[in-house]
Structure formats: structure tokens, C-alpha cells
Design a protein around this nucleic acid. Structure first.
Length: 219
DNA sequence: GACCAGGCACATC
DNA sequence: GATGTGCATGGT
């Protein structure tokens, strides 16, 4: 397993090149994006973030002071907007509680496991969102797993279909050195692969850069 | 019109 | 503990 995960990374990087993630300019923008992208494509998230930028609302205090209903309306294009407005408020409340000065960089100075527990305790933040925030906003060496990771690993027969999030994460983290740049790029490459090849149905495996990694099990 | 997208919480059995 | 359902927009 160790060797194949490295080989897959190389194959993806050779094929796609660096992905330049996360597509966000500040830690705050990454936090917002991490919530908004839940079960939603990035184009819609981008529109929602654009709305916030246009109205100069992409600051901690502006978001914190904005009524939830108004926030929901701004992020409408990202879908699930009422739910996500609540989730954003929950996350901002955690940071405010931990860091009254609203300094996100200082918030991230805590130990990774402590931060992860605090994030997971926020209603609306599950493992993928927590880990995305830790890796991409906090620059902690935490491997992010998502549905594409699951599809890639199951379709190549590398894990069983019952494997859960934590087990997949352990696979990568037991194999690869804790390296923020590597984890960043690897996850981004898997998403890129997923967008282009590992569609839910109709996977275009013929042209997939991983086609040589057999066995290949099509669902 | 159906299906899909960088999840998560909660109800029910 | 497993399985199902609500949340919702915009592109293909």
C-alpha cells in the first residue's frame, strides 16, 4: 500500500501538474469556502464568496455582525444557504470564543489534535471540513479525505467498500511523511482526478491517468 | 427533467 | 449500528 500511494501521487502530479490550492486568498476565505463547498461544486461557492467580497463582508467582524438571514441571502448560490449561514456563524462563534481578538492565525497556534476536536465539536463541521480547515487554513499536516478519495481507492480495489473516513486518512498518514505541501497537493490532485474521471456514474477510465493501477473495479 | 456537486446532522428502525 | 432523509443552487 505504501508504495502504490506514492506511485499514484506521482502519476497524478505528472498528469495534472501542481493544482495551486486552496483557491482562497486568506485564512478567513478558506474557512468560509470550506463550509460553503460541502456537497456543492466550486463554481457555486465562488459566486457566493464573490457576493461577500462585493459587499466587503469578507472580514471576521463583518460576518460576525451580519444577521444570519442576510448572510444566508448573500451565500444563496452555494446552495443549502440557510444551513450554511448557521454553520458559518457556529464556526465564527468558536473562534471568537477561543480568540476574542478575532485573530485566526493565533487561533491556529494550538496543537493540531486540540484544534481538530474543537472544530469537530462545532455543529455543521464534520471530518472533511475540519481537516480542510486544518490543512489549508491552518497549514497543519492533516490528510483530507473526500468522496473522490473513496471512489479512487475502492475502484482500484485498494480498500473495502466499508472503509470509513478515519481509516482512509490513516492509510495516507501512516504511509506519507507529515508534509503540508504534499498533503495539500495530493488531496487537490485527487479532486482534480475526480472532477475529470471519477464521476459518480460513467467513469471515463479509458483515459484516466491511473488506468495502469489495476485492479480496476467499475461500479 | 434527471443527475450531480470538494458533507453533515438527525430520525427511525 | 446501519440506513434513510433534509438541506438547495446552478451546470450538464
Amino acid at each position: 500500500m505504501a508504495a502504490i500511494l506514492v506511485d499514484i501521487y506521482k502519476a497524478l502530479f505528472d498528469h495534472f501538474g501542481p493544482q495551486q490550492w486552496w483557491p482562497g486568498e486568506s485564512p478567513l476565505e478558506i474557512l468560509v469556502g470550506a463550509i460553503l463547498t460541502q456537497n456543492t461544486n466550486w463554481a457555486n461557492v465562488s459566486r457566493a464568496i464573490g457576493n461577500l467580497k462585493t459587499d466587503n463582508l469578507l472580514t471576521f467582524s463583518a460576518l460576525n455582525n451580519l444577521p444570519e438571514t442576510v448572510l444566508a441571502d448573500k451565500i444563496r448560490p452555494s446552495g443549502y444557504f440557510n444551513l450554511k449561514a448557521k454553520r458559518l456563524k457556529n464556526l465564527l462563534a468558536l473562534i471568537k470564543e477561543e480568540e476574542p481578538a478575532e485573530n485566526i492565525e493565533v487561533f491556529f497556534r494550538r496543537e493540531t489534535s486540540t484544534l481538530r476536536e474543537k472544530l469537530l465539536a462545532v455543529k455543521g463541521i464534520g471530518p472533511e471540513t475540519a481537516d480542510s480547515i486544518l490543512l489549508y487554513a491552518g497549514e497543519k499536516p492533516v490528510f483530507v479525505v473526500d468522496t473522490y478519495t473513496y471512489r479512487m481507492l475502492t475502484r482500484h480495489g485498494l480498500i473495502g467498500t466499508e472503509t470509513d473516513y478515519g481509516e482512509m486518512q490513516q492509510l495516507f498518514m501512516d504511509t506519507l511523511e507529515p508534509d503540508v505541501k504534499l498533503y495539500n497537493e495530493y488531496h487537490a490532485l485527487i479532486v482534480r482526478l475526480g472532477k475529470e474521471f471519477c464521476k459518480k456514474r460513467n467513469p471515463r477510465c479509458i483515459a484516466c491517468p491511473l488506468r495502469r493501477f489495476e485492479p480496476l473495479l467499475i461500479d
